[in-house]
Design a protein around this nucleic acid. Sequence first.
RNA 1: GCCCAUGUGGCGGAAUUGGUAGACGCGCCAGACUCAAAAUCUGGUAUUCGCAAGGAUGUGAAGGUUCGAUUCCUUUCGUGGGCACCA
Length: 969
Amino acid sequence: MEYNFREIEKKWQTQWKESNAYKVSNISDKPKYYVLDMFPYPSGAGLHVGHPLGYIASDIFARFKRLKGFNVLHPMGYDAFGLPAEQYAIEHGIHPAISTENNINNFRAQLDKIGFCFDWDREVKTCDPKYYKWTQWIFLQLFNSYFNRHTQKAESIDSLIKIFEAEGNVNHPCPGDATIEFEKDLWKSFTDEYQQVVLMHYRLAFCGYGEVNWCEALGTVLANDEVVNGVSERGGHPVVKKKLRQWYLRITEYADRLLQGLQTVDFSDAMKEMQTNWIGKSTGAEITFDIQNTNQKLTVYTTRPDTIFGVDFMVVAPEHELVKHITTAEQKNEVEKYLHYVNSRSERERMAEKKITGCFTGAYAINPFNAKPIPVWISEYVLAGYGTGAIMAVPCGDERDFKFAKHFNIPITNIIGDYFNGEEANATKEATLTNSDFLNGIVMKDAIELVVNQLETLGIGKKKINYRMRDAAFSRQRYWGEPFPIKWKDGTAYPLSENELPLLLPEVDTYSPGPEGEGPLANIPEWVAKELETNTMPGYAGSSWYFLRYMDPHNDARFCDRKVSDYWNQVDLYIGGTEHAVGHLLYSRMWTKALYDLGFIGYDEPFKKLLNQGMIQGSSRFVYRLTGVLVPDLNDNNNTFFSSKNHFDKYQNKVAENKRELFELINSVLPSKYSKELIEIGEFILTPLHVDVNIVDGYELNIEEFKKWRNSEYANAEFILEDGSLYNSESTSKYICGAEVEKMSKSKFNTVNPDDLVAKYGADTFRMYEMFLGPVEQSKPWDTKGIEGVHRFLKKLWRLFFDELKGKVWNEEKATTEELKVLHKTIKKIEDDTERFSFNTAVSAFMVCVNELADLKCNKREVLEPVLIMLVPYAPHIAEELWKALGNTGSILDATFPTFESKYVAESTKEYPVSINGKLRTTLSLDINISQPEVEPIVLANETVQKWLEGKAPKKIIFVKGKMINVVI
RNA sequence: GCCCAUGUGGCGGAAUUGGUAGACGCGCCAGACUCAAAAUCUGGUAUUCGCAAGGAUGUGAAGGUUCGAUUCCUUUCGUGGGCACCA
């Protein structure tokens, strides 16, 4: 009886489906566990072996927890709105819903082959009106809420109106526009329209105008993290800045809570650091400077008010309001030229620029403490959106300011004495201040507070906490997204009522942008006639709360029943890539906090533990095509030569002998012959070409397959093999390919499709091999060749139960102590490794176990059955098959994970390593409970130790019980 | 430029708390089976000196702490990823 994985896997996948083996109930006595994969976007390209890595890891953990007695929620669904489908629609005229559905079906078929334990009854799709009804509903909750800074939570806008009616906004300064201040009577005197304008500046989901990343080609606005190198991440189209009406989420109000929340979750330090940096909280001061000879004022934000006397110039953002007011007549031309230059550049370009650019405005600010005039410059390195859009430059303490000063020959004031060497800036806080008026002699870090106090006393500045994070742009001028449940009346936005939801996405004739950069919805007369919002929501709308919908996916009355979300609570384990570090993860954390504040759920962090999977890189293969200088025959397609790697390597070394060898060989088959002279002066060029890794076995090219590759482009090519011979049907030598680790991509011909591997080796082998490659968190290259080792392991396991000739070999004999030791050692290792997500070492522990049981010729059910149970998370199909073969009736999926018992692995002796001066020289088998005084004479009596002692007495003998012995001479 | 991660045999990797470096697998070599090949099985495989016994070297590099360092510290180099010149 052979291991027929194809039949076995098909059989159990069908049976598990029929028996609803993965159906999860919201009612259970068992403790709950929620394992979630990051929401996939169903792309048209299909899966390559890198994609399922995280799904396999989460599947293993979900199955493991089930064996450990948990009620495990492990759902899957689709983040189905998005740009590629819309782009495809624009190009091919196919409705995004249709192409998305096709992609989902392909995706699903690929997933099913790998044998995941998802509860598909809970599948969600963000583009389904039953789903986005609730995305719209949550949006309305955010629209109807503001952030109360006193209680530090979201509260209803109605309660804010009551506050305004009672006391104005004196205690609730306006987050959207700090200049809006009013008493209660003034509030009451406002028109309805203006009251709505004011309220808009408080809402958590609000509408405003802002500079956005405008992509003409896509006719849409992109979030910062969707723009890569000045072009759109999806599609690669140019992106410029444009002012547009946009919806936003007031995530900045949650900045502090998002920071604090990081302390309560189990994310990697790197991930926490990334989010912390993104939020970018800094403490500093705002200082207002008068502009000389004008009544203008310039406010800057600085984290180093202690350096106030080291300010040698100001830099304001080119977009700064003040620029046009303070630029002097002489500088006007210059400034306009510079502004024109800056305007032509995208934000990304401005950020990435190393070149120092800038322009003097002609104006001078006045240092409030010593009345020193300070020249005001503009430069693209200062951004309008951060702080006040202006900085005070201290060249002796800031490297960037220093370089700017050097570049434009601005004199530098040294306020840190010897700490500044004139060669580079020094950002120290430890220096004692000099040239600093009333701060002279004070250490910088102590001066900070002094200056702030002084600023506040003089009324020219104040302490200020600043965040780098900006409010999240929450609208797109495109079609394939959730419509906003918003109506416009005379320029005022009004929410639809709850019973009008879902507001369905209408059909359109064209997916191209509407007038003046509006979305495709603006092209629909009926839509516009109803005065509905023409923007749609961005991709992260649906993915910000999907983990809640999985809990209660069919609920028509609520987004998720409170009792149900109380039961499932947080996601216990969230697995996905680091690419969502600051986008999705921050937005979903904010939504969760808002929903919590409003009383809809009972916790304010969505993900308890986050595990970041690494990328699987491609391992590319190359063939080397020969062309030549002064070797004309090689340069036409009738004489195509490929050389094995050996010759490429040799030829790279430019040894004349190697060249001649190669020439002689080629000369012998070419129709026209070359003279000796030409051989001496001619040169080869060996060009590496990517070759499809699927026609290469390890490094060995399958030449016949290669000839058929790319429509038989190379059908007539000649191949110089590793031993220097030319390929023919009787060749014994091989064609060896070059290799390089690169990103996995179709264009590099290094993608490997999981379907092919599952067909060839089975899902169980594939799952185990993906894990065996290395730690989940780490990036590592794919190597198809290695999968055979894992496949051999499963076959070897099979042979413990069934022999090809003899049939059944497993038996009911009593296990020996040695066999039980192997079993329990394995139980401990598998359990520990799985708990700590070290799946690669768990796979090798299975291999060790099977190797040892095979050596012991152990075919005993008593030992094999627990091994099968442990194997369920990793290789469920073979485990179930053998479980049934042993005569069990229930499914192994519901078995109980075996219990480790230390008595079986207890040792009475230990093989101690004995080192001399830290170098291992010998080992000694000693009683496990031996003490130092007992050890010493035994060690000293040892032959090897005596040899190294050479008669001398040891200085010291170090004995660590259960670990080692070290003799110091 | 800044931040993060990472560096161990021919390759992927292991060594969980400072305690026998290289588990497990791939590849390679040899052998068994076979007319032969494939498949399978068995043994070997860090480098180096040596017939062997046994040495020496070895976790990117250089220092340091320690009886003992892949593990901790300092400096430095390479690779991968991220970024916002963030005041």
